[in-house]
Simulated assay, not measured.
Amino acid sequence: MEQEATPHVQGITLLRDQLLPKLLKEDEESILYWAGKELARSYDFSSVEDILQTMEEVSFGTVEMVEKKRSSYRFHLFGSVVTSRLNGNKNATFDLETGFLAQAVQQVSQVYSEGTYRLIKKGSRIEILIQTDRKESLTE
């Protein structure tokens, strides 16, 4: 179920794309990435499907897993929230979402995970790549 650009989402977008860049300046990307990881720690994820549902519920957009390999996951983030943010701000960042997704995958896989993203202009999609390091297991 894709989120519409409700006043709630518009308010979040205003904060994300107008206020935070001014406050955080050159540290915006790294702070938002680690903030996303911290936010994800407040959830108990049991599966990738659980992660995808939660990301939609918190108005990050619609997320689909497009590829899973031994040491990586590839996701697409899209929908009205993403399109609206990209249309309103050509410099919109998706580090918060990437950090959130990286930490959530880490919780489910129990191995250290980091993420990066890139814009796919066709279709207004964000591709998020989560790399996992099986040598850095979080279980004992």
Rank of each mutant, 00 (worst) to 15 (best):
E2C: 07
A104Y: 13
M55C: 10
E136A: 12
V111Y: 09
E4V: 09
D95P: 03
L19R: 01
G88W: 07
Q131H: 04
L23Y: 03
K90Y: 13
R118T: 09
Q10G: 06
L77A: 03
H76Y: 12
V66A: 05
D133T: 08
E136D: 07
E127W: 04
Q53E: 15
L77F: 01
Y33Q: 06
L24K: 12
N89W: 03
E29T: 10
T83C: 03
F45Y: 11
I12Y: 05
I130L: 00
E97K: 02
F100Y: 11
T83D: 11
V63L: 12
F60G: 03
K122T: 15
F78P: 04
Q103A: 14
E114K: 15
N91E: 15
N91G: 12
G99V: 06
G11R: 10
K25P: 00
R134P: 00
G115E: 06
V63N: 07
L138D: 03
I12W: 01
L77N: 08
S124D: 14
Q110F: 09
H76E: 13
K135T: 06
V82Q: 08
R134G: 00
G79K: 07
R134Q: 04
S47A: 07
S113F: 01
G36T: 10
T98E: 13
L23A: 10
S124T: 08
K22I: 13
K22M: 12
F75Q: 09
D95A: 14
G123P: 11
E28R: 13
V66I: 15
K68V: 02
E140R: 14
A102S: 14
V108L: 04
L39Q: 10
Q106E: 10
V9D: 01
L96G: 07
N89A: 10
E4P: 01
T54M: 05
T83Q: 13
Q53W: 04
K135C: 00
L86G: 12
S84P: 00
A35F: 07
